[in-house]
Design a protein around this nucleic acid. Structure first.
Length: 980
RNA sequence: GCGUGCUUAGCUCAGUGGUAGAGCAUUUCCUUCACACGGAAGGGGUCGCAGGUUCAAAUCCUGCAGCGCGCACCA
């Protein structure tokens, strides 16, 4: 702050200090530190993503928590990193390559070449979001940055997969999965969102084969799947249809098939709701989850009619073959009409599952995938239910519990290339396999293992093929329908993989769901499975800050992984749970309440906002608008307000700079004014409130307190009042040039020679140095600049604020000793408040008298008790008065406006300048209000049950209030009378 | 259907039993020597609706309505 600009310019400050923090290694966590640990792992953003306002919200909160923890003397680890985001990243790269005309399909490049391109893309774009987080001021330990596809991290993923496979928790199965026809991969249930869709319900009739002339009517929304129907189901209790069970109907499609090939049975199944539709359900086991289960119960054929791309296949018949499923729906309806089978169609709205990522309807599809039965479910559920791990706001605990209570196995395989390839190798064998010549080392072992019919555990056995201590896990062979066997072997070891390949095994082509890697994040980033010092020091982490939209995707799964892998006693950790507190942010929306989205274009670029207003302003604006647990409607005005606040802080410090004088000198108790005591007590209150708000994760409350304290209390009242001291002292010595080196630009200062002024500056320094520290977690850049610029760093020990405000101690509320020593009695709060209230009233009189704000005027004060000259000086200054004349016997004449409170009466003679009628109207309005209040309180006090039952303090309060209102009424009446 | 949150000033939101608050917007005045990214003074609300508990309800209870979110889902 050598040159003090009139307005704060964040651009010239922010990059400088960020580099300073990096150079000083202030973000680096020391796992050997004796300080208590505080840790957060970042929710890893998509490596090729860019910063959004959601990230700003999320990471500002984490940064506030970390910076506060550092100031509290904790050893802080904020562990950053990025996520490989399988589908999203692969899709982006694929689309880019297609756009450039380089490929038509990723097959044109092949797996390896394609992956090379994705890595190139990652190298090019991967750093962007990290750089953006730095712009925001994030105090992450960048030396520990991790990526979910780092070699060490990938090994963790493999290790966990193989371990769960060995435990029998991961299995392969042909099941109905959520298939995304756009991304051509299976998805987990969590990646499907239900959307309302307007369509039609089609009613078509079918003939009962055994009873010609008898027809059933079937209602369906998906007539294109008729060729895939292998039964018609009715409820066995349905009297309309029960007698038909066991008979057959003739399926209308495909039309070209002979009648006998289209006969499908009528079955009875409790699943059918006979109140819905016609009570007759077409069963398509290959294309509907519920139908699949009915099919399984009744051993129905699974007829696939839709392929992976969502197009009809040959089995759908000549009419539909090759058509997209939605086009096929129209054609199927046309065919039904042509057959006179369609009875009616009605507009119908139903919910359809959409792929969250690709935004296309999911196609339920039979396919072979890897599934996981979740581990450590009970512990994970209990820890939250019992409140050992706390969710904020806690209602999310219920959501979590509900989900944990209805867990479905997790489909973890994805038909993608970008991700962690599944570490399972398979080989289809025939009987000839058993006759391999003996002595062919590894193979013999394998054969021997298999011949030993009864593997030691149910799911498989551990073997070594490479012979160097590495092992693989050989799963129990799976029998195929053609009599062959498929062997599955899982390993984390390269050498074993080589051996397996030699034997003809091939690795599963699929990769794992991205969340299968990120659920290990809290410990895989800290060196697991080694027993690292980092894990010992920083696990379990303290807080997790994330959005509720990923509570199932990520939070719940991390808890389970934590228990499954960190529960091992060898770690000697106090607890296996990955974090002690989870703070769920709101979701950022635009000011119309819509979600931020690229297609709507309503998502401002945080970097633009930083460039325009500064990072501190963005942080403050977002924090101020983000109450606990509520969605945030974002408006650029919030950021503007943040900038204004920074500017206010800047200028308040600038004002102090201009006074010169010694920095942070001792405060002399005997010289403290009521204003000094008032602001010190207000500071004390603010410190308490902010500390409490932060402990409760109430960031918007905290910013509101900062704003109120600094702007409304410190700047609006204290600084203005302090000018009475600083300027009167200068007036007394007005002829003198300041001795403090020409710094007295404003002409206010002469602190060096005036002890009162010097003491005021000491109070200002005390307040500012506390304020700047209290603001630092929220506004890291400007506070670091001021900390050094104001000279507050100089007296501090090197590691406690001397070098950087980051390690300056968090300001504690004033203790009783301090208050006693400086005479900070609570009565000064009221004295200040009353004085400032009288000032406000006095200014109001000026308005009522239509006197311009800059005109110096004369007030007469009739004080209730003795009024020290200094207080009169303050009043004079705050009222912008030429004089405030003390007159205990003043009797207001006509045209004199008056205000009063407990301090006394303030009179403003107007010499007929006022609009009498307007003033009367104003006073009458006041009077009305006052009398209404008096009536209310009197009514209460007149009620015996009130006076009998109410606590004494409340009673007294009401009595006092009545007296106050009565006093006001008398005053207004007098004023009215004075007007004539 | 189940769960959950919201409904308070024109807007965005605080306020969990005892005198209705903030910021923005708005009106008027002021470019007074920290700040016009500023200062001063105003105006503006029967706290979604209906009951109940209580001396006392924006606040607690019940019901209803509207908006949002999550989960489940009937073809």
């Amino acid at each position: 702050m050598s040159e003090i600009s009139k307005a704060y310019e964040p651009q010239s400050v922010e990059d400088k200090w960020y580099q300073f923090w990096l150079d000083g290694k202030f973000f680096v966590a020391n796992e050997h530190s004796a300080k208590p640990a505080y840790s957060i792992v970042i929710p890893p953003p998509n490596v090729t993503g860019v910063l959004t306002l959601g990230h700003v919200l999320n990471n500002t909160i984490q940064d506030i928590l970390c910076r506060k923890a550092r100031m509290d003397g904790k050893e802080v680890l904020w562990l950053p990193g990025t996520d490989h985001a399988g589908i999203a990243t692969q899709t982006v790269v694929e689309r880019t390559l297609k756009k450039s005309g380089e490929i038509k399909h990723r097959d044109d490049l092949g797996r390896e070449k394609f992956l090379e391109r994705v890595w190139e893309w990652k190298e090019k774009h991967g750093g962007i979001i990290i750089q953006q987080l730095k712009k925001l001021g994030a105090s992450c330990d960048w030396t520990r940055e991790r990526f979910t596809m780092d070699p060490e991290y990938s090994r963790c993923v493999q290790r966990v997969f193989v371990d769960l496979y060995k435990k029998g928790l991961i299995y392969r199965g042909k099941r109905m999965v959520n298939w995304c026809p756009a991304s051509l991969t299976a998805l987990s249930d969590e990646e499907v969102t239900m959307k309302e869709q307007r369509g039609f319900m089609y009613y078509f009739k079918v003939e009962v084969a055994e009873a010609p002339g008898t027809f059933l009517t079937i209602a369906t929304t998906r007539p294109e799947t008729i060729p895939g129907d292998s039964a018609v189901a009715v409820n066995p209790k349905d009297p309309r249809y029960a007698h038909l069970i066991g008979k057959h109907i003739v399926r209308p499609l495909p039309v070209e098939l002979p009648r006998e090939q289209k006969l499908i049975p009528i079955i009875g199944d409790e699943h059918v709701d006979f109140a819905f539709g016609t009570g007759v359900l077409k069963v398509t086991p290959a294309h509907d989850k519920a139908d699949f289960e009915i099919g399984a119960r009744h051993k129905l054929a699974q007829i696939e009619v839709i392929d992976a791309k969502g197009q009809m296949n040959d089995a759908a018949g000549v009419d539909l073959r090759g058509l997209d499923r939605f086009k096929a729906r129209k054609v199927a309806v046309e065919r039904l009409v042509a057959l006179s089978a369609l009875e009616k169609e009605e507009p119908y709205t139903n919910n359809v599952g959409y792929s969250e990522r690709a935004d296309v309807p999911i196609e339920p599809r039979l396919s072979e995938q890897w599934f996981l039965k979740y581990p450590s479910v009970e512990k994970s559920r209990a820890v939250v239910a019992k409140g050992e791990m706390k969710f904020h706001p806690d209602r999310w605990a219920k959501v979590y519990d509900h989900w944990m209570g209805g867990l479905q196995d997790w489909c973890v395989s994805r038909q993608l290339w970008w991700g962690h390839r599944i570490p399972v190798w398979s080989l289809k064998i025939t009987s000839g396999f058993w006759n391999y010549p003996a002595g062919f080392g590894p193979l013999q072992k394998l054969v021997a293992a298999l011949r030993d019919d009864s593997p030691p555990n149910e799911s498989g056995i551990e073997i070594t093929l490479s012979g160097n201590g590495r092992t693989s896990f050989l799963h129990k062979p799976i029998e195929n329908s053609d009599g062959t066997l498929t062997l599955f072997c899982a390993t984390t070891h390269e050498e074993e993989a080589v051996e397996l390949s030699k034997l003809g095994f091939t690795q599963d082509p699929d990769v794992l769901d991205t969340w299968f890697s990120s659920w290990l994040w809290p410990f895989a980033t800290m060196g697991w499975p080694e027993q690292t010092e980092t894990l010992k020091k920083f696990y379990p982490t303290t807080d997790l800050v994330t959005g509720p939209d990923i509570i199932f995707f990520w939070v719940a799964r991390m808890i389970m992984a934590g228990y499954e892998y960190m529960g091992d006693p060898k770690f000697g950790l106090p607890d296996a749970m990955p974090f002690q507190n989870v703070y769920f942010t709101g979701i950022i929306r635009d000011k119309q309440g819509r979600k931020m989205s690229k297609s709507l274009g309503n998502s401002p670029d945080p970097l633009d906002l930083i460039a325009k207003f500064g990072a501190d302003a963005l942080r403050f604006g977002v924090m101020r608008a983000a109450p606990l647990g509520q969605d945030i409607l974002f408006d650029e005005q919030n950021v503007e307000l943040g900038r204004n606040f920074c500017n206010k802080l800047w200028n308040a410090c600038r004002f102090r700079q201009m006074q010169g004088g010694e920095v942070q000198s001792e405060i002399e108790p005997t010289l403290l004014s009521t204003d000094d005591k008032w602001i010190l007590l207000k500071l004390d209150a603010a410190l308490r409130e902010v500390t409490i708000a932060l402990n409760e994760y109430k960031f918007s409350d905290a910013t509101a307190v900062l704003y109120r304290f600094f702007w409304s209390e410190y700047c609006d009242w204290y600084v203005e009042a302090s000018k009475a001291v600083l300027s009167s002292s200068s007036r007394r010595e007005s002829a003198q040039t300041s001795e403090s080196g020409g710094e007295s630009q404003s002409g206010l200062t002469s602190a060096a020679t005036n002890p009162r002024a010097a003491n005021t500056l000491a109070v200002i320094d005390f307040v500012l140095s506390h304020t700047v520290r209290m603001f630092h977690p929220f506004l890291p850049f400007i506070t670091e600049e001021l900390w050094h610029g104001m000279g507050y760093a100089t007296d501090m020990p090197e590691n406690q604020g001397g070098k950087t405000i980051m390690f300056a101690p968090w300001p504690l509320p004033l203790d009783d000793d301090f208050k006693g020593h400086y005479g900070l009695d609570d009565c000064y709060l009221e004295m200040g408040d009353t004085k400032y209230d009288l000032v406000s009233q006095g200014r109001n009189l000026r308005r009522a008298a239509n006197i311009g704000a800059s005109k110096k005027i004369k007030y007469i004060l009739k004080p209730v008790t003795f009024m020290p000259p200094h207080e009169v000086e303050v009043l004079k200054l705050l009222l912008n008065a030429e004089t405030v004349e003390l007159n205990a016997d003043f009797l207001p004449g006509k045209g004199t406006l008056s205000a009063r409170n407990n301090l006394g009466e303030l009179h403003l003679p107007t010499e007929g300048l006022i609009d009498i009628a307007a003033e009367q109207a104003r006073l009458n309005k006041d009077l009305e209000k006052i009398e209404a209040e008096i009536a209310k309180v009197e009514a209460k006090l007149a009620n015996p049950s009130f006076t009998e039952k109410v606590p004494v303090t409340v009673l007294q309060e009401h009595q006092q209030r009545l007296a106050e209102w009565q006093g006001k009424r008398d005053h207004v009446k007098t004023a009215l009378a004075a007007l004539g």
